[in-house]
Design a protein around this nucleic acid. Structure first.
Lengths: 204, 204
DNA sequence: AGCTCTTGACTGAACGTTCTATCAGGGGTA
DNA sequence: TACCCCTGATAGAACGTTCAGTCAAGAGCT
């Protein structure tokens, strides 16, 4: 059980590479076999019943549990001046990893056409991130560190503010043209966000 | 010149439908012909040299000049309390149109795999929106209505705050689950944004 | 008017290639 | 021998594309 078959892993890795670069339709069994250095594409069918199953397994084994919101229970009570910049930077730096970039391209690209991928994407990634942010915001309102507001909107807003910057890394070089660095962006938007949600002095 | 050949338009429409639903690889000449009610797929080759050219023409003729940032020169001097909610609502309501939804799916989906689509997308849509927002923000800073700040970051932040909500309409039903309406979202995030960029009382 | 010739729009059949998937069999190890 | 891992050949379908040819509508001539 230990090795989980060298070959299997090798095929999965190559399939991940091909699928993320060309999409499900664009990647072929032959191209995957070539990328995996297999002498014959037929070998793939020894490990996987068909292309569809191979694709599903790539998705299943490679979905990243986003580092940015892992081990977050302990963060709930910490003040936003510390937590938000840290989350934002971790979130953006996630996209510096080649593996994450490929996974994101794969997920976003296929989610457009395959509802089941959209669901995986929505549940595994978006829901988790938004869910954490909502509960964090709610907790901070409770603690009186943020003014009362609709946390569904602020959670969307916070993660959304980072998306154009992430998009620049992923597939839109046009965005990068003005040379704004991650740190500059995070500092600016967290500043706006916190001032915008500051508890008013005359309240409570 | 007036009609631009009924048939041609008919094929373009069907191709748009097919490409946006299944992607370039997923849509076939045959499926496009069927969608266009042609008796023979061969007819497509009378109007277009090949599939690639058909795809390019679909992109070229269907790219939306985003309503949200059209005729914007006149907005530059108007105060953000009026302009920003209006832009945000127009931007989000754009995605209620089926044609825009399909175009967005097509652009985002193919931009992942085709750099030339990413470039079109980047230049035709993103650059225009971000460009307008940057100059608007800069102008408002000049007028003393917003505090001085990095407009590259605030432009990204403003449009970004709306993206999760737009994504919910496009392909991520998971986001819609908490029932936040466009108007609620816009009101909340514009509130945060404006408070966050308010000119401080003791300045100037 | 009647006739032929040309042209633009369209079709069915077919081409060569590429795709996924199958299958009979072979080498290595126990 | 028996089993697992692997291969080459190939089936069968689908792909984009080409091509010869049909057909209705008009142009030009008589």
């Amino acid at each position: 059980m230990a090795e989980e078959s060298d070959r299997r892993a090798q095929i999965l890795e190559a399939a991940f590479e091909e699928f993320s670069a060309k999409g499900f339709k664009g990647a072929t069994i032959k191209s995957i076999a070539r990328a995996a250095n297999l002498q014959s594409p037929a070998l793939i069918y020894w490990y996987f019943p068909d292309k569809e199953a191979l694709f599903r397994e790539v998705l299943g084994t490679r979905i990243p549990l986003l580092r940015a919101v892992r081990d977050t229970a302990s963060l709930l009570d910490l003040p936003p001046e510390n937590v938000l910049p840290s989350i934002a930077k971790r979130y953006l730096s996630t996209f510096d990893s080649r593996a994450t970039q490929r996974m994101a391209r794969l997920l976003v690209g296929e989610a457009m056409r395959r509802p089941e991928v959209a669901e995986i994407f929505g549940n595994a990634v978006i829901q988790r991130v938004l869910g954490f942010l909502k509960s964090y915001m709610a907790r901070q309102v409770e603690l009186g560190r943020l003014r009362p507001h609709d946390v569904r909107a602020s959670a969307r807003a916070f993660i959304g503010m980072l998306i154009p910057q992430a998009g620049g890394k992923l597939f839109l070089p046009a965005i990068r043209e003005d040379g704004l660095t991650d740190d500059e962006h995070v500092e600016a938007v967290v500043g706006i966000f916190l001032l915008g949600l500051e508890r008013k002095e005359d309240e409570e």
